[in-house]
Design a protein around this nucleic acid. Structure first.
Lengths: 244, 244
DNA sequence: CGTGCGCTTGATCGGGTTCAAAACGTGTGG
DNA sequence: CCACACGTTTTGAACCCGATCAAGCGCACG
C-alpha cells in the first residue's frame, strides 16, 4: 500500500495476460473492438471493497491481477465466503441489477471492467461471448459443488489441505507442472479469510496449519509464503480420491 | 412403486407443465420442432439411479415431474448432496462427456431427455437455447452460494428450517401465495437424504424435526407430510434476514 | 404374523468453538 | 536505532453442539 504498485494495465488485449481464459477468450478482433468501446481498467488496494451487497451493479468484468472474494454475512455477523476470484475470473452477473454479495479485494487487484448495459446488449447478440460465459459459469458451478462437499463433510484438516492444494494449483497452472520440485506459493488470504472460506474459526485454521507444519507437510515463512516439499503428501490429506 | 403411476408424459410441448421455466422456455415453434427430433421421455422409479458418477453422458434433459438429487461420495463413504433437482430443472452438462455426480430419483421421476450430441449442436447455433441455459446456470450458482452459507455457518436447527422453507417455496411457487392459509407439502426426501443435503447425520435431522414439531412450528403426518401453521415462524428459524 | 426399512430416542464422546492471553511482525515516531 | 502500538497469528483451557453407538418403535409388505 505504501509501496507504489507498478501499473500493469495491459495496453491492448493482445498483451493481456488473461486473454486466453477470460470471458472474452473466444472473441474476434471486431468483437474486441466493440468491447473496447465501454471498457475501462480499475485498481483496488488490498482490503478495499469492490462492491457491497445490495449495491446497484454498474459494471461486470474480469480480474486481471490479484485476488478478490465474494462473501455473505448474516445479521449476527457470521460470514461465509462464497466465491474466491483469481485472475481471469469473471465478476458480476448479467441480468441482475444489484449484487447479492460483498466483493472485496484481498490483495491489490487490477480489473478490466465493462459498463453493464452495453455489455448485456453485446452479450445478447454475440455467441462468442455468451458461450464463453456459459462455459465459465458451468465451471464455477462445478467448483461450487466441490466446495459444498468440503463444507458439508470434510474435517478441519482436510479443509485446510484442500484449500492449500487449490491455491497452489491455480497459481501454477500457467507454469510447467514440475511435480518433482518444491512447490512454493503465497497465501493471498488472512487466517480469517481462510476461515470464512472453509466454514471454520480462525483459531482452528491456525491450529491446523501449525499441525501440517509440525509434521513437515508444509513449511512457512512470514506466515504467508508456503513451501510444499511433497505435494502428494499434502494431497493425501485432502480426503479426495487421487486424480490430477 | 407397487402402484402404477399414471403416464403423465405430455403429448406435445404445448401441454408440458414446465414449458415456461425449462431450458426450452424461449424456443419458438421451429426450434421446438428441431428439439423434438432427438427428444424422448423417460421415467424412473423412486430410489432408482439416473446416472452414475463417471458414466458417459448420453443425454441431458429436464425434470418434468418428481425430484432427483446430485450426490458426491468420498472414498470412505461420506456423501454430500450437491444438487436438488425439481420440476423444470436441467440435468446434465453440455461440454462434458462424463458425469461428475451420481444422479438419483428420490421420488418417481419423469424426464424429457435430449440426446447429447444433437443437443450440443443445436445449443451452439440457437441463442434462445443457450441464453436460457445461461440464465438457469447463473440461478443455480446463486442457489449453490446460499447453500454454501448454510453448510458453512448455519446451526442444525437453522439448516432444517431453511430446507423446509425452500421446499415449501418451490412446491408452491406456481400456486397463489396465500400466506394466511396453512401451508402443506410433502417431503420428497428421506431423513438420510435431508442429512446429505444439510451436512448432518440423520439422527440430528430427526431430532431437530422433532424439536420443531414439539414447539408447534410444524406438524407432520406419516413422517412425510408437513403442515406449517405460521410460515413466518418457520422462516424466523432459518437465520436469514427477512425478505421474500 | 414376522421381517425389514425408515424413523425416533437415549447416552456418551469428541472435534471444533469460544474465551482469553501471549507472541510475532510491521510500521510509526522520537 | 530503538521504543511503542496495532493488527495478525499462535497457543492454552474449558465448553458445547452435533456425531457416534445403540436400542426400540411403527408401518408396509410378503
Amino acid at each position: 500500500m505504501s509501496q507504489q504498485t507498478p501499473d500493469i494495465r495491459p495496453k491492448t488485449c493482445d498483451t493481456c495476460p488473461i486473454r486466453a481464459r477470460a470471458v472474452c477468450a473466444h472473441c474476434n478482433g471486431s468483437e474486441l473492438e466493440e468491447l473496447d468501446q465501454f471498457k475501462y481498467y480499475r485498481t483496488y488496494e488490498a482490503g478495499q471493497p469492490i462492491i457491497f451487497a445490495g449495491d446497484k451493479l454498474e459494471f461486470v468484468g474480469s480480474i486481471i491481477k490479484g485476488v478478490a472474494t465474494l462473501t455473505q454475512t448474516m445479521e449476527d455477523g457470521r460470514t461465509q465466503m462464497t466465491g474466491l476470484l483469481l485472475p481471469s475470473d469473471f465478476v458480476g452477473r448479467p441480468g441482475r441489477e444489484t449484487s447479492l454479495y460483498d466483493v472485496t479485494a484481498t490483495t491489490d487487484v487490477v480489473m478490466c471492467c465493462f459498463r453493464l448495459a452495453p455489455f448485456e446488449a453485446l452479450l445478447a447478440r454475440t455467441p462468442h461471448l455468451s458461450q464463453r460465459l456459459l462455459e465459465m459459469t458451468l465451471d464455477e458451478l462445478d467448483s461450487a459443488r466441490e466446495w459444498l462437499l468440503l463444507l458439508g463433510r470434510k474435517t478441519a484438516r482436510e479443509k485446510i489441505a484442500s484449500l492449500l492444494t487449490f491455491i497452489s494449483k491455480r497459481q501454477h497452472e500457467q507454469t510447467a507442472d514440475l511435480l518433482d520440485l518444491d512447490i512454493c506459493f503465497d497465501l493471498p488470504l488472512t487466517r480469517e479469510s481462510m476461515a470464512d472460506y472453509l466454514g471454520l474459526t480462525l483459531e482452528t485454521v491456525s491450529r491446523q496449519i501449525s499441525a501440517l507444519k509440525r509434521e513437515g507437510i508444509i513449511t512457512l515463512e512470514k506466515n504467508r509464503s508456503v513451501t510444499v516439499p511433497d505435494i502428494t503428501k499434502l494431497y493425501q490429506e485432502t480426503g479426495d480420491d487421487y486424480a490430477a
